[in-house]
Design a protein around this nucleic acid. Structure first.
Lengths: 211, 211
DNA sequence: GTTTTAGATGAACACCGTTCATTTACAAAG
DNA sequence: CTTTGTAAATGAACGGTGTTCATCTAAAAC
């Protein structure tokens, strides 16, 4: 059985896509330990060294993987924004809810995207250089709109966006088992749902406090 | 030059302490990459294998290191609490401020304690089993007191403590360079101070909203 | 049909955490 | 003061990791 070679740009892109998909699968199934160049190469049926014809380093591969997830994430955020009718404050609530739901319904992916340090490398490659998820700017735009509508006042839009994001992210993170106070019940899905809806209510209060 | 042996319990404790200190130094200086068994052994002038006469695994060593930092952290929190005069709400503010100050003044240590995943291991050792930082309970007590004093009402103390902690932690985390939207200015100390004082003000507002 | 090029190979390198048979310094027992 | 048992320390080894590179060769370009 002789190996085919991916020489045309399309074939190479297909092969690269397969590498990303298998890498992601391995991470989601086995955590960062599972995301090894050898394991990925085995899954796409090639030698480990050949991966370096597609990517500069494991770190670059990592960024390529999560970039796709962030693109999907941003897309879904956009869908929430585009289908929304009503005030910008209501929309901000919806975005917070979207984020919290994503976190408890797809925890492994959330951990991959928001909580896992990128593998170290001696150099910064092209993928990492161009890596700039748009999700934050998307929410910033909504906050700006809320300010323009005078739904929010006395607010620095960037800081305010960061603040809301920080609240949501921080509260998701302390539900994770390895956080410093591993509350037993915090790992039960029921409690997580209860807690995140509590967080969402607090955010509503905060948003209402700024008009 | 023949090597001394640490046979008495005291000598062994001293040697162990040295291991922890050098391990911590390496992490704070070079990050998690620097925290390798070989590098630590070299610093304490022994063979890498000998570390396993002191500790079951690298993971255990890791927990031993940060446990000390958490003990110090809890101590300092206690000092804030013990020297406080005034309302419990004011005290909660002070604790938030203490946390934020710690985060921006000793970022490397903060990252080590709160943001670095423990090294993986196939087994859970005694140090990890007994690992239970008290900082959270300490703050919970203050919240409970605030509830008893009727400074806070309609509040589940555990959830409320988690919420404040989540806010503070989450907002520190998104100032870190590797967070998904690496805002250039967010890495400048001046901006970090400005932002954390913004966060502190928001927390004050939130606390005042619950009486 | 020939030449060029780049995907694929497989061995190697330097690092990592961990294990273990062995040595030997030291504390306790006689 | 000597003997003996024990456990700290050694150093080599094992299997894992990311990465590099000379080499081969399939497929595109001429």
């Amino acid at each position: 059985m002789s190996k085919k070679r991916a020489r045309s740009p399309e074939k190479k892109a297909t092969q690269f896509q397969k590498i990303l998909t298998e890498g992601r699968k391995l991470f989601l199934k086995y955590g960062s330990e599972g995301f090894s160049m050898r394991a990925i190469a085995k899954k796409v049926d090639m030698q480990q060294g050949n991966l370096y014809n597609y990517v500069q380093s494991k770190r670059e591969l990592w960024f390529a993987v999560i970039l796709e997830d962030f693109q999907k994430f941003t897309e879904n955020m956009k869908a929430v924004i585009d289908t929304h009718q009503g005030s910008s404050i209501d929309l901000l609530e919806k975005l917070a809810e979207f984020y919290l739901n994503f976190a408890i319904e797809d925890i492994e992916r959330y951990r991959m995207m928001f909580m896992t340090p990128a593998p170290p490398s001696s150099s910064i490659g092209p993928i990492e250089s161009n890596y700039q998820p748009e999700s934050f700017d998307l929410m910033l735009q909504v906050v700006n709109q809320a300010v323009d509508n005078k739904e929010l006042s006395n607010v620095d839009p960037t800081k305010f966006t960061m603040f809301i994001w920080g609240i949501v992210h921080g509260n998701v993170e302390l539900l994770q088992p390895e956080f410093l106070f591993p509350l037993q019940y915090a790992q039960k899905l029921d409690y997580q749902k209860e807690y995140t809806s509590f967080v969402l209510n607090q955010i509503k209060k905060i948003l209402r406090n700024y008009y």
